[in-house]
Design a protein around this nucleic acid. Structure first.
Lengths: 225, 225
DNA sequence: TGTACATCAGTGAACGCGCGTTCACTGATGTAC
DNA sequence: TGTACATCAGTGAACGCGCGTTCACTGATGTAC
């Protein structure tokens, strides 16, 4: 995942010429997020990020001021946009809450399937106390996903669109579990199942999960036994 | 969760008398696991563990030789036993694979509900590269849970006990998600839902999840629409 | 039952190392006249 | 269009600090006679 450090020419001292590529800030953020995803925030040193991006550790302070500020910048510029995209459906008024719910879950899974580092980073940091990311992720999560999902479920239950015998909080928890955990742990189960003939790809997983979710939401018919 | 450092009398130099309590090794392991759960393995310093257990950092090396060895000792003595208990049903020959499957899930959830630090620690470490725990947890997991669960599902499908239209690998992934993720993230959603009138406890969650799982495994009847 | 001494449990202070951070500096670029 | 100089992007070397680890030590315990 992490590319070998770019072997750039050893860069003479002084201000660089305009010819040398100027989006170093982006390169630094790319390197930082790649390493954070692999090792976690605390375990990643500024020197490692700098080496990866082909700059000096001093540059990181020149750009961001401190490691903590850098993590926050990264959250604002690389993580928040994804959450905003995922949660967009939750913010628009819904004719059919059930349809919005399914669309949101599918969109969310597709979003994290396309950016597999997202759930991995988020779940790990949320489980560790004292991280800079933890508080902000929890806040963002509880303000958007949790509230929106819960509201949709309650509306859909009230309208009789889905089964109403489940606690909406527990149901939202189960749905989030199904939509997040498999993607966050993808590298693990891929290696566990690697001997299988047919590999599992993201589309299989998304389709499977949607089948499950539809089944879960479905209203009970008269039981046969 | 972490108790304040025991304010023991400042312990005169030299070998301690027999009167002073002798299970310091256990105290150290307790302190270590509590801190590992809260902060993660790399973020926990030996000094923090020593302070917490009321001993010197040098003692940790006296007992375990190194931090890595200590983590391994901890895994063998505090984590492996729980996994062994949880996975016991998977190792006994089953008359009804479906019944064993449900019993295993229920037992597993009850087990981690009673020891909530377990899933939190395991999920976090498994998601971080380079940890000592990671490799061993993955190995243990793929050797027992994954293999056992997969086998049970395949047997139950072959016997017609559960619906057979789902990929057993994806189904096992979904079941593990439902049984692990909600418990690993318990502190988060508890704080998100803390304004609710009726608090969610572990029994609610277990019962809810088992209802969902039974529904998921249930064979389809003719659809009405 | 005493005594001499090896062993044992654990300490306290220091070690080297890598961390995040600082700061004086370098030389290209932008601007005023 | 040139020139002088302030500004800017970024470096290199060093800073103090806390980390995991080491080691000479202390004094209670176990053992041999």
């Amino acid at each position: 995942m992490v590319k070998p450090a770019q072997s750039r020419k050893p860069r003479r001292p002084g201000r660089p010429t305009q010819a040398s590529n100027g989006d170093m800030r982006e390169q630094v953020l790319d390197a930082a997020i790649a390493l954070f995803v692999e090792r976690g925030v605390i375990a990643t040193t500024l020197r490692a990020i700098a080496t990866q991006a082909g700059v000096t550790p001093a540059l990181l302070h020149y750009y961001f001021g401190s490691k903590d500020s850098m993590v926050e910048a990264l959250l604002d510029q690389r993580i928040a946009p994804f959450i905003a995209i995922s949660t967009a459906p939750l913010r628009m008024p819904a004719k059919s809450p059930r349809a919005v719910l399914l669309a949101f879950l599918e969109g969310h899974m597709r979003n994290i399937a396309a950016h597999p580092w997202l759930p991995r980073l988020m779940v790990r940091e949320v489980l560790s106390e004292g991280g800079v990311l933890r508080e902000r992720i929890i806040k963002q999560f509880s303000g958007t996903i949790a509230k929106g999902l819960l509201g949709l479920i309650e509306q859909a239950q009230a309208l009789g669109e889905i089964r109403a015998d489940l606690d909406p909080r527990l149901l939202s928890l189960s749905l989030v579990s199904l939509a997040v955990f498999p993607f966050a742990t993808a590298p693990i189960w891929r290696s566990v199942f690697k001997s299988s003939a047919k590999q599992i790809d993201a589309e299989n997983l998304i389709a499977h999960t949607l089948v499950l979710v539809r089944g879960i939401l479905e209203k009970k018919r008269a039981k046969s036994n």
